[in-house]
């Protein structure tokens, strides 16, 4: 074999090894392109569907935003008109407020004047009430005085009527006594001062003064006893003495014991009588 054949053998060996390496490499780097294509296609379809969904959502959102923008614009226009109307109303209200303030100032001034007048009237009313109260108290007092005077007047009138009645009875008694005296041949004009009435009483009290014994007896001027009369004093049936009347009162009298006729001590409870007279 010559040199050229050796070179071909070596070249054939080298290329055979290269072929085997390439085949092994191709087999080792095997890829399923169909499945890859299918997967990429599926992913593409999904992406397109998502794109369509997003596009429709975008359009819907866009239309919604457009409507909202339009509504907001209309609302803005309405608010502008409302603002203008409220501003006009505010001006009217301000003008009305100014007018009311002016009227309120006038009313306050009038009210103050009325209050002053009211205070004056209240003071006057209080004075009038005081006057009325005083007048009522005076009226009550005068009424009480009039009532008391009326009672006194009635009492006096009753006394007068009683006195007149008693006077009529006394006149009748006098007339009857005068007739009786004349029927018994007695002069009705005889002075009665010299006649001592016949009455009985008791010694109510005794007292010794300036050496003389004073005796108080239970009969007085209502019984006809007068100063200067004499009364006799008895205890049971025994004569005790004689008293000379010094002073008299309507229901009692005071006499001095006449020692010339005294026949025993005179004590409280002794009887006195006017049967005897010392002339």
């Amino acid at each position: 074999m010559n040199f050229l054949g050796k070179c071909f053998v070596v070249a054939l060996f080298v290329m055979s090894c290269a072929f085997m390496g390439a085949a092994i490499a191709a087999y080792g780097a095997h890829r399923d392109l169909k499945a890859e294509k299918q997967r990429i296609q599926t992913q593409l379809n999904q992406t397109q569907a998502q794109l369509q969904t997003k596009t429709s959502e975008f359009q819907r959102t866009n239309s919604s935003l457009t409507q909202e923008k339009q509504a907001a614009t209309e609302r803005l226009i309405q608010l502008e008109s409302e603002k203008a109307r409220l501003a006009e109303r505010n001006r009217d209200a301000q003008a009305e407020l100014d007018a009311l303030r002016t009227a309120s100032g006038a009313a306050i001034a009038g009210m103050e004047a009325t209050q002053i007048s009211n205070n004056a009237l209240a003071d006057e009313l209080n004075e009038l009430r005081d006057s009325i109260r005083e007048a009522l108290s005076d009226k009550d007092r005068y009424f009480a005085t009039a009532l008391e005077a009326t009672e006194k007047f009635q009492a006096i009138r009753n006394d007068i009527e009683s006195a007149l009645e008693q006077n009529r009875e006394l006149v009748a008694d006098t007339s009857r006594m005068t007739s009786l005296l004349r029927a018994n041949n007695l002069d009705p004009n005889t002075p009665a001062d010299a006649i001592t009435p016949k009455v009985d009483g008791v010694v109510s009290r005794t007292k010794r003064e300036n050496g003389a014994q004073l005796v108080e007896i239970s009969i007085g001027s209502d019984d006809g006893i007068r100063a200067g009369d004499t009364v006799d004093v008895f205890r049971n049936t025994k004569y005790r003495g004689r008293l000379e009347i010094l002073r008299t009162a309507p229901d009692r009298a005071v006499g001095r014991v006449d020692v010339r006729f005294q026949q025993g001590p005179i004590q409280e409870g002794d009887r006195v009588t006017t049967r005897l007279k010392l002339s």
Partner: peptide, 30 residues
């Protein structure tokens, strides 16, 4: 047997192995 004979045998074996892998690769696309 010379070295060149061995090289020829190895070259044949390498070609056979390369053909087998190529077949397997082509079979996978069927």
């Amino acid at each position: 047997m010379t070295v060149y004979t061995v090289l020829m045998i190895l070259a044949t074996v390498a070609l056979a192995v390369g053909c087998i892998f190529l077949y397997l690769e082509s079979a996978s696309y069927q």
